[in-house]
Amino acid sequence: MSPSSSLAIPDAAIQAIIGAGRRMDRFHWVPATAGNFSVRLPGGRVAITRSGRHKGFLDADSVMGVDLEGRPEEAGARPSAETLLHCGIYRRFPEAGAVLHGHSVANTVLSRQAGEGIELAGYELLKAFPGLPTHEAAVTLPVFDNDQDIARLQRAVDARWDGMAAISPATGSVIPPGYLIRGHGVYVWARDMDAALARLEALEFMLECELQERRSR
């Protein structure tokens, strides 16, 4: 069943998601059917990739709508299996307008080797993260254990965010705009798709540097 016109997804959101898929596919960050992308829509809606689609070959039919609880707007439609993680980001961060999830070699390998986080320090591209105007900074990217129970994984993410915000209430939040799932991939968000892609590329560059540096030790 096609959604009614009142639930149509704006073409700009569809094209942003299609463009993100092609760009990330060129970097080999979304092999096979891996990865998922979304854009926040007005009225508590989210445009997100359907399950099982190769992200380098998305089209308008590859994008569907859900609400902020992950419920599909189309009867019988199947969104990405990790839709609840996207919704969790949108509920937590009202400034987030787009979310990207990718599976690069660097983020997969490093997350398998990490503890609860990966520290990135001294990189020029740290300036791609909000509140970091200089390379003379450090950010710890959280790492969460993989879990096929996505609702339970989202509860773990929320618990970490609650704890981090409590550390520095004066600043409102000390939460970096991204996290890793162990052996699985990265989540990054920003105000819109262009900003999210820039943030992801900066992060992937730093993770690749970390991987190469560890290999040379």
Rank of each mutant, 00 (worst) to 15 (best):
M1C: 12
P3Q: 14
S4C: 11
L7C: 08
L7S: 07
I9Q: 01
D11L: 15
A13R: 02
G19K: 07
R22I: 07
R23V: 08
D25H: 09
R26D: 09
V30Q: 06
A32P: 12
G35M: 07
N36K: 03
P42Q: 05
G44K: 03
R45I: 08
S51K: 06
S51N: 07
G52W: 09
R53S: 13
K55Y: 07
G65N: 13
L68P: 06
E74F: 12
H86L: 00
C87M: 06
Y90I: 02
Y90D: 01
Y90G: 01
R92L: 03
F93I: 05
P94T: 14
T108C: 06
L110R: 03
R112G: 14
E116T: 15
E116L: 13
A121M: 14
E124K: 08
L125H: 09
G131A: 09
G131P: 02
T140L: 02
F144M: 11
D145C: 12
D149T: 04
D149H: 06
A159L: 14
M164V: 08
S173E: 02
V174W: 12
I175M: 11
P177E: 10
P177H: 09
I181V: 11
H184K: 03
V188T: 10
W189Q: 01
A190D: 09
A190Y: 00
D194M: 11
A195W: 04
E201I: 00
A202N: 04
M206D: 02
C209T: 15
